[in-house]
Design a protein around this nucleic acid. Structure first.
Length: 461
RNA sequence: GCCCCCAUCGUCUAGCGGCCUAGGACACCACCCUCUCAAGGUGGCGGCACGGGUUCAAAUCCCGUUGGGGGUGCCA
């Protein structure tokens, strides 16, 4: 039997890092086993689904290098789900319920779930034939699945081991909304069965829906279930599940900030999985070779931007110069292409994200930035800085305007005075204490600009 | 409240009964390299949550405690 996995996002927004990681683990296992990767858009909630998000999800997945072999949309399969729920009602495995949330709360309180009130009340479907016809006019009647009162529903999770739920605590859950649209459980259970999904790899936040899906599958006549693997969640510094509201989770935003997809992909994989040989940064082919769902960790993992930045820096430095230039130039702003190409080798060595490019080259392509007060104080208030700048000014006036000569002039002036000259000149010309090597980029500036900047600094002392 | 899950350095991980005086990575600190920074190199700091078992032997198995998290919708 061929391995078949599916990634099933709901198109309610852009892909976020948690979903991306789920997609990745599915994809990794599919590629590892020579299996099939299915992309299934779970858009059963008509009100929340944004069809335009589907294209965005495609883009995000492709950006990460994830491809898929088959694609489905649940909204195109409503008829099949209705057929199933109809059968459930006909056979007594499900029933109509007209309780409002308020009714239930009044009966059992806030903390309890549905009490099975309508199980045997024989609630009639509305005149139009009942929930499930999708015409939306039977607002208050839903279909609920009759869950067993005893026994356990359990599965052997590939990551977590055996997980058991007492059927007693499973309430009769809604399988068809009052607008006639089936709930995701039904679509999910039906599709996994219909599409012969063999491995379900998803976030741990879905564990508690698994017994429902298992029960539904059994009601549909399934005798076997897929292997489930519930991934540990990705959490923020507060150890809470990454959320759209409070955390930076949009994959697209990371792309915009200048993270390389290879770096993001590689980093995401280390959240919950590590190679036996301790090597973290490596080509995706090697990861595919080594990957196994069973080796994934159980504990939640913190999304550590600092480590992501490190990974990204590594990948940026691995780029050959031409592709670095090609990929980073759009971040550089309005710069002459040839000038940027000359600066690029210095830039590539120190940025960790492309969005750091502007602040690296700004003093060459624009005005010298404002000096941070504490940098000024640290460098320019030392004794002798005035002498250094005076002498440098003198030497720079008629020196040959090329890097080597500039270095000799500036450093030579310092040596002559027995003082450090590089840092004061750097502050004067670049506005910063750190950055690219000074002299090559400095040679790109006009002599007058450099002299003016140094004079201005000298005057400010 | 009820249900489910989790627990190795600050963080991500290796470890799946003896190879562990617990390894690697990020971060941090120091030194080297060096026109600054970064990169690189070297070294350092730092952990098996706690308590009981089981065993000749436990980070590894079992139980409990504590601490976290997830779920509890006519979202997925």
């Amino acid at each position: 039997m061929t391995v078949r996995l599916r990634f099933s996002p709901a198109p309610t927004g852009f892909l976020h890092v948690g979903s991306a990681r789920s997609a990745l683990f599915n994809w990794l296992y599919a590629r590892r086993t020579g299996g099939v990767m299915v992309l299934r858009i779970e858009d059963t909630d008509v009100d929340r689904s944004r069809p335009e998000m589907i294209a965005a999800i495609h883009d995000n997945l492709r950006w990460l290098g994830i491809d898929w072999d088959e694609e489905y949309r649940q909204s195109e399969r409503f008829e099949q789900y209705r057929e199933v729920t109809k059968k459930f009602v006909d056979s007594g495995q499900a029933y109509y319920c007209d309780c409002s949330r308020e009714d239930v709360v009044a009966r059992v309180g806030e903390n309890a779930g549905y009490d099975g009130h309508c199980r045997d009340r024989g609630v009639e479907p509305p005149d139009d034939g009942g929930a499930g016809d999708g015409d939306g006019d039977n607002r208050s009647v839903v279909v609920r699945f009759r869950t067993p009162d005893s026994g356990v529903t359990a599965w052997d999770d590939l990551i977590r081991g055996r997980v058991e739920f007492e059927n007693e605590v499973l309430e009769d859950f809604v399988i068809v909304r009052s607008n006639g649209v089936p709930m995701f459980h039904v679509a999910n259970a039906y599709d996994d069965l219909d599409m012969n999904i063999t491995h379900v790899v998803r976030g741990e936040d879905l564990v508690n829906t698994t017994p429902r899906v298992l029960l539904l599958r059994e009601a549909m006549g399934a005798t076997e279930h897929p292997v489930y693997a519930h991934l540990p969640l990705i959490v923020n510094e507060q150890r809470k599940k990454l959320s759209k509201r409070r955390d930076d989770v949009s994959l697209g935003d990371y792309a915009e900030r200048g993270y390389l997809p290879e770096a993001m992909r590689n980093y995401l994989i280390t959240l919950g999985w590590g190679a036996k040989d301790d090597i973290e940064i490596r080509p995706i082919e090697e990861i595919v070779e080594r990957f196994d769902l069973a080796d994934i960790n159980k504990a939640p993992a913190f999304f550590d931007i600092k480590k992501l930045d490190h990974f990204n820096g590594e990948y940026i430095r691995q780029l050959d110069l031409d592709s670095f230039i090609e990929q980073s130039q759009s971040y550089a702003g309005d710069v002459d292409g040839e000038l940027y190409a000359r600066l690029a080798p210095f830039v590539q060595e120190r940025v960790r994200r492309f969005d750091e490019v502007p602040a690296t080259i700004d003093w060459v392509v624009g005005e010298s930035p404002q000096v941070e007060p504490k940098d000024w104080k640290k460098v320019m208030t030392k004794d002798g800085v005035d002498k250094v700048l005076d002498l440098v000014l003198e030497r720079l006036t008629d020196v040959t305007w090329e890097p080597e000569a500039l270095a000799d002039a500036v450093l030579g002036a310092g040596n002559e005075l027995g003082l450090k000259s590089q840092l004061p000149v750097r502050i004067a010309v670049t506005g910063r204490r750190s950055g690219m090597p000074l002299f090559e980029p400095m040679a790109e500036l006009d002599r007058s600009v450099v002299l003016d900047r140094i004079k201005a600094a000298r005057d400010r002392l």
